[in-house]
Design a protein around this nucleic acid. Structure first.
Length: 297
DNA sequence: TGCAGTGTTGCTTC
DNA sequence: CGAAGCAACACTGC
């Protein structure tokens, strides 16, 4: 479920743990995750390169290497990085990475490792991705920054200023739920946090963005900052596959407000949380706390 | 057993 | 142009 808080935690850990290391080797059993160029080119280009720093661009991870090379990783639905040790075994003609030590990482450790970056000090950085949607691109830093979904995304949801949010919201023809998840307008928010942000701001997900009042936009802005920074502090949400780089769960999911709580009582008023479809995604909200028409209008 | 639903994004179609 | 539907993949839960 990597949205902004999960990716931010991942990038902080990578900066702490792998900067300064050299890449010794790269293994994969899912070369199709390399969405531009070939895995062989990626491997050749990465070996002997030093990791200089790691950046987050909304939900994108950019690992900067020496000589102006870079690796772009988008975790999509189920991707996450893990540091550990694996051995490669042959399972009916197909290579599979199996974790060395049982019980260190959380459950579902084996079968989903599709990339391993071998570091010069013997540690291994792996990419686990159950659904194999992740996007990996290797290239010159300059080209990576020009990638679709990197150069042309909106302002980061944790960096946006109130005036910028007001301008985007008032110009949009979309409903507020769809706008919050539109990476080309505001970058970093997905389904989990848009549900919780709208609940916190007491705004109905179908509310037309351009008809929000100034007060509602102020509330939305504060809710965005509060929910996202809390989720960063709590290590993100691990209701599904996300784990931090050590394999541990984030705890935001344990105190989420409405996301995937349909049929359960609202924490504020006790009304049962509803689920509707918006733009093909499920949206959860409290029909009493988040009325479609604000009181008095 | 079968099928709807699941974090994301991008492509095709209307 | 925008919106809707679906595809990529594999699992969970009703």
């Amino acid at each position: 479920m990597p949205e902004l808080p999960e990716v931010e935690n991942t990038v902080r850990s990578l900066n702490k743990l792998i900067v300064g290391n050299y890449i010794k080797d790269v293994w994969t059993n899912a070369p199709k995750l390399v969405r531009k160029g070939s895995f062989q080119e990626l491997k050749k280009g990465m070996i002997k390169r030093k990791i200089q720093s790691v950046e987050r661009r909304a939900k994108n991870i950019i690992i900067l290497l020496d000589e102006d090379y870079a690796l772009l990783v988008h975790l999509k639905m189920t991707g996450h990085f893990l540091i550990g040790k694996w051995y490669i075994q042959n399972n009916q003609g197909r290579e599979e990475a199996v974790f060395y030590k049982e019980g260190v990482l959380s459950e579902k450790v084996n079968g989903y490792i599709h990339f391993i970056f071998y570091l010069d000090d013997g540690r291994e950085l792996a990419l686990s991705d159950l659904r194999k949607f992740a996007k990996i691109v290797f290239g010159k830093k300059e080209e990576i920054y020009k990638e679709e979904g990197v150069y042309n995304i909106g302002i980061d949801a944790l960096e946006i200023k109130i005036g910028e949010l007001r301008a985007i919201v008032s110009k949009s023809s979309k409903n507020i739920k769809t706008l919050l998840m539109d990476q080309y307008k505001i970058a970093g928010i997905g389904n989990i946090y848009s549900d919780d942000i709208l609940f916190q701001a007491k705004i109905h997900p179908l509310h037309k963005a351009s008809s929000l009042t100034n007060q509602e936009i102020n509330n939305l802005y504060k809710a965005m900052r509060d929910i996202l920074s809390l989720a960063v502090r709590l290590g993100g949400t691990s209701i599904s596959d996300f784990r931090n780089i050590k394999g541990e769960k984030g705890t935001y999911g344990e105190r989420r407000l409405v996301y995937r709580r349909d049929g359960k009582p609202c924490f504020v008023c006790g009304t049962l949380i509803k689920r509707i479809k918006i733009g093909g995604r499920s949206a959860r909200f409290c029909p009493l706390c988040q009325p479609l028409l604000a009181k008095g209008r």
